[in-house]
Write a protein that binds this DNA or RNA. Structure first.
Length: 195
DNA sequence: AATTTGCCCAACCGCAGACTC
DNA sequence: GGAGTCTGCGGTTGGGCAAAT
C-alpha cells in the first residue's frame, strides 16, 4: 500500500549531507551574489551542489551571510537573550532579530547548552532559600502583610491588562527592523516586574 | 596512552504557513 | 478554491573535541 505523500518528499533525499566544504561555500556564495538569497532549490541547482535547497538556505543564514558575528557572546548580549526569552519564550528567530549578527541557531544552541543550565541552577538556589525562609515564622507574617497590602490597590486583572498592552506594543515594534542593542537593554530594564 | 564522558555547535528533520499556478 | 511547492521555524541529532578517569 502506498504511503501518503509527505512534505519530506520535496527534500533531496539522496543529496549530500554533513559538513560543508569551503569549495561548496564558495560556489553557494557566488550563486547567491548573482541570484540573491531566494529560490533555494534553484540556487542549489545553479551552484551545481548536491545539496537540497533547505541545506543551502541554512548554510547561508547561519554561516555565509555577511555581518555574521561568531562566538563570544558578550555579557550584554547574554543578558538581553535572557530577558527576551522570558518575554518571548523559544521564539529564537525573533530573539535573534534583536541581536545584530547573531543567528537563531546560535542563540538556540547557546541557550540549550549554557543558559538553560544557569537558570536551573538559579531556580534551585531560590527554591532552597524559599524553603529555609518559609521555616522562619517572622517571614510568614511579613509575607501575609505584603499580600494584604496589595488587596486595596489595582486588581490582578488590571495589572494583566496593563502588561498585555505593553507587551503587544513591544511585539509590534519587532516588525520595524532591528533595534539598537543598548536601547533594547534599557527598554527591558525599565520595568523588571514585566517578567 | 587509551578510553570514557560531557559539551558545543553545525546540520538535519518535520511541521506549518505562505506562495504560485 | 485547491493542489503542489517553497520558505521559515523550532526541535533534535550526531560528530568533533577537550577534559576527566
Amino acid at each position: 500500500m502506498p504511503t501518503a505523500p509527505t512534505r519530506s518528499r520535496y527534500l533531496k533525499r539522496d543529496a549530500n549531507r554533513g559538513a560543508w566544504t569551503s569549495e561548496e561555500d564558495q560556489k553557494l556564495a557566488q550563486v547567491i551574489e548573482t541570484h540573491g538569497p531566494r529560490r533555494w532549490k534553484l540556487v542549489a541547482a545553479k551552484a551545481g551542489l548536491d545539496r537540497c535547497g533547505k541545506s543551502c538556505r541554512l548554510r547561508w543564514l547561519n554561516y555565509l551571510r555577511p555581518n555574521i558575528k561568531r562566538g563570544n557572546i558578550s555579557d550584554q548580549e547574554e543578558d538581553l537573550i535572557l530577558r527576551l526569552h522570558k518575554l518571548l519564550g523559544n521564539r529564537w528567530s525573533l530573539i535573534a532579530g534583536r541581536l545584530p549578527g547573531r543567528t537563531d541557531n546560535e542563540i538556540k544552541n547557546y541557550w540549550n547548552s549554557r543558559l538553560s543550565k544557569k537558570i536551573k541552577q538559579k531556580e534551585n538556589q531560590s527554591k532552597f532559600l524559599e524553603l529555609h525562609q518559609s521555616q522562619d515564622p517572622r517571614n510568614n507574617a511579613a509575607a501575609a502583610h505584603s499580600v494584604a497590602g496589595n488587596e486595596g490597590g489595582t486588581s490582578k486583572r488590571e495589572e494583566e491588562m496593563k502588561t498585555d498592552f505593553s507587551r503587544d506594543e513591544f511585539l509590534d515594534s519587532f516588525n520595524e527592523g532591528p533595534l539598537n542593542l543598548e536601547w533594547m537593554s534599557r527598554f527591558l530594564e525599565m520595568d523588571e516586574t514585566w517578567f
